[in-house]
Nucleic acid binder design. Sequence first.
DNA 1: AGTACTATGGTTAGTAT
DNA 2: AATACTAACCATAGTAC
Lengths: 105, 105
Amino acid sequence: MENPKKKTLGRRKIEIKKIEKKSSLQVAFTKRRGGLFRKASELTVVCGVEVAILVKSPADKLHSFGHPPDVEALISRAEEKIVGGMEQYLKFLEDFGGKVEENLR
Amino acid sequence: MENPKKKTLGRRKIEIKKIEKKSSLQVAFTKRRGGLFRKASELTVVCGVEVAILVKSPADKLHSFGHPPDVEALISRAEEKIVGGMEQYLKFLEDFGGKVEENLR
DNA sequence: AGTACTATGGTTAGTAT
DNA sequence: AATACTAACCATAGTAC
C-alpha cells in the first residue's frame, strides 16, 4: 500500500438531534439540502409526479425546489384555500386530490 | 450455510427515468416518498430549520410534509405574495428571507 | 397501496480547502 | 457558504406477501 494510513475516519454514525457547532451545522445543511433536493428531483422523474419544497436555512434564507419549475404551479393552487386555517387547508387537500394522505412531523 | 442461495439480487443500479411498469412505479413511489420525508424530517432536526413539502402521487393524491406540523405555517406566509405570479413570488422570497437561493428543476 | 427481505448502490460525517 | 475527500453508514431495486 502506498499509504496505509487512512485519510479520514469516513462517515460516522450520528444521533438525529440538532447540531450545535455552527460551522458543522452549516456544512451539514448544505449537504443535506442538496441531498433532499436531489431525492425530490429523482422522485419527479422516476415516478412522474409533482413536488414542491420550501426550506428556510439556518441563516434565514429561503431555498425552494419545484417541479414544475415554477413552484407556484403546485403551491398557488393552495393559496386561496389556505387562508381559512387548517380546516380550510384540509378541505383544499380533498378538493385538490381526492383522498388525503398526510405525513406531519 | 443454511441456504447458500441468495434470496434477492439486492439493490440494482437504475437509470433515473420514468418507470413505466405501473406496479413497480407504485412501489418505488411509496418507498421514495417515505425516504424523502424522512430526509426532510432529519433536516429539520439536525439543522433546526423549517421545511414544507407537497407531493402529488401517481394516483393524484396529495401528500404533505411540514415542520412546523401545520404546513400552512411556512406556506401561508406566501399566499398573499404569490398571487402576482413569478415576479411577485420572487419579491416575496426576498421579503421572506433576505437573499434568495433557488433550486429549480 | 403498503411492508418485508437483503445485497448492493448511494449518501454523508468530519475535516480541509 | 460551498466543494473535495474517503470510509462507513444508510437507502432501496426487485420480488413476494
